[in-house]
C-alpha cells in the first residue's frame, strides 16, 4: 500500500486548517466513490487524505420557501428520500434516484460528485438547470460560485487549491414550475451516456416564462443548452420539439468511446431534451 496520512476532522474549521497545511499533498475525501477507486488503481496517490465524513454540519438538506440547501456531504439518498423535495423541486430527487445503485446512493455524496466533475455525472446537469450556487470555503474566506461558472472542463472546476465545496444553494422554484431529469445509462457503469435536466416556469398562458436546461455525458464538461432555452422562452409545449433540436449546438468537444459515438450522444441530448422539457411542462401545469 502506498502510505498516506489520514485525518478525520470533526469541524470544517479543522478541515480547512489541514487543507491549508498540506496544500497539494492532500486530497479531500467525501463519500469515497471517486477518490478511493482512483487510489486503488494508483492513479491518485495523495500523501494526506482529509476525510470530511465526520463533519456533521455538512450533511443537512433543507427545503425552505425561498431556498433549498444541500450540505456538500449529504448523500444522494438523503436528497432522493427527502420528505419535502418532491413537492418543492422534483428535479432534485429525480436526479438522485438516477445515480448508480442503492449502495452508491447511500454512500456517495452530492458535493463529492459535483467537486469531482466527472463529465458523465448526473448532478452537474441538474445543478445547471436549477442555477445552483455553490458555497466554497477557502484560505481567504468564503465565496459563492454559480453552477454555470463552476464546471470548467473534464474533471476540472472553479475550485482553487485549498478550497472545499461546503454547500449547494438553490432558489426554491416558484409555483407553476416543473423540472425533470432524463438519462440513458452507460450499461456498465450507470453513468450518463447523455442526461438532460430541464427546469421551466410557466406564465398564466401556459407559455415558458423561464427555462434552464443542463446536459451531461455528452461533452467534456456539463453545459447549459442556451440555444434550446432561447428557442423556447415565451413559447408553449408545441415549441419543445423544435427547441430541443438545439441541445447539442455549440459543443466543442464531444465525449466519444466504445459505449457511444459523438453523433449518438448529440442525438441523445436532443431526444432527452425533448423528453425532459415535455415532462417538466407537464409537471408545471
Amino acid at each position: 500500500m502506498i502510505p498516506f496520512d489520514y485525518h478525520a476532522p470533526k469541524t470544517l474549521q479543522k478541515a480547512m486548517r489541514l487543507v491549508r497545511e498540506h496544500g497539494d499533498d492532500a486530497s479531500v475525501l467525501a463519500g469515497g466513490h471517486s477518490l478511493i477507486p482512483l487510489m486503488k488503481l494508483r492513479f491518485a496517490a495523495p500523501a494526506v487524505v482529509i476525510d470530511l465524513g465526520g463533519i456533521g454540519g455538512l450533511k443537512k438538506v433543507t427545503a425552505g420557501h425561498e431556498t433549498i440547501t444541500i450540505g456538500a456531504l449529504a448523500t444522494h439518498y438523503a436528497v432522493e428520500s427527502h420528505r419535502l423535495l418532491p413537492g418543492k423541486c422534483r428535479l432534485l430527487p429525480e436526479t438522485a434516484s438516477e445515480i448508480g445503485d442503492v449502495q452508491v446512493r447511500n454512500r456517495g455524496t452530492v458535493g463529492g460528485s459535483i467537486a469531482h466533475a466527472d463529465p458523465a455525472a448526473d448532478w452537474p446537469a441538474a445543478m445547471l438547470a436549477l442555477n445552483a450556487q455553490f458555497d466554497i470555503a477557502g484560505p481567504s474566506g468564503e465565496r459563492a460560485v454559480a453552477a454555470s461558472d463552476f464546471f470548467v472542463g473534464l474533471f476540472t472546476t472553479a475550485l482553487q487549491a485549498g478550497e472545499v465545496l461546503t454547500r449547494i444553494r438553490i432558489a426554491t422554484p416558484p409555483e407553476n414550475s416543473g423540472g425533470a431529469y432524463v438519462k440513458m445509462r452507460q450499461s456498465a457503469s450507470g453513468f450518463a451516456l447523455a442526461g438532460v435536466a430541464a427546469q421551466v416556469a410557466l406564465d398564466s398562458a401556459g407559455n415558458c416564462a423561464s427555462v434552464a436546461v443542463g446536459v451531461t455525458g455528452v461533452a467534456s464538461v456539463a453545459y447549459r443548452a442556451h440555444a434550446v432555452e432561447d428557442a423556447l422562452r415565451g413559447r408553449g409545449l408545441d415549441a419543445i420539439a423544435e427547441a430541443a433540436a438545439h441541445a447539442a449546438d455549440g459543443v466543442e468537444e464531444f465525449q466519444e468511446d466504445h459505449h457511444a459515438s459523438a453523433d449518438y450522444r448529440a442525438h441523445l441530448a436532443r431526444v432527452f431534451a425533448q423528453r425532459a422539457l415535455t415532462r417538466a411542462f407537464e409537471r408545471a401545469t
Binding site: D101, Q186, S187, A188, S189, H258, H259
Partner: peptide
C-alpha cells in the same frame, strides 16, 4: 482490453 472492469464491461442487472 478496453473492457477490463465493471465500469466498461456491462453485465445485466
Amino acid at each position: 482490453m478496453l473492457t477490463g472492469s465493471f465500469m466498461d464491461y456491462a453485465l445485466p442487472k
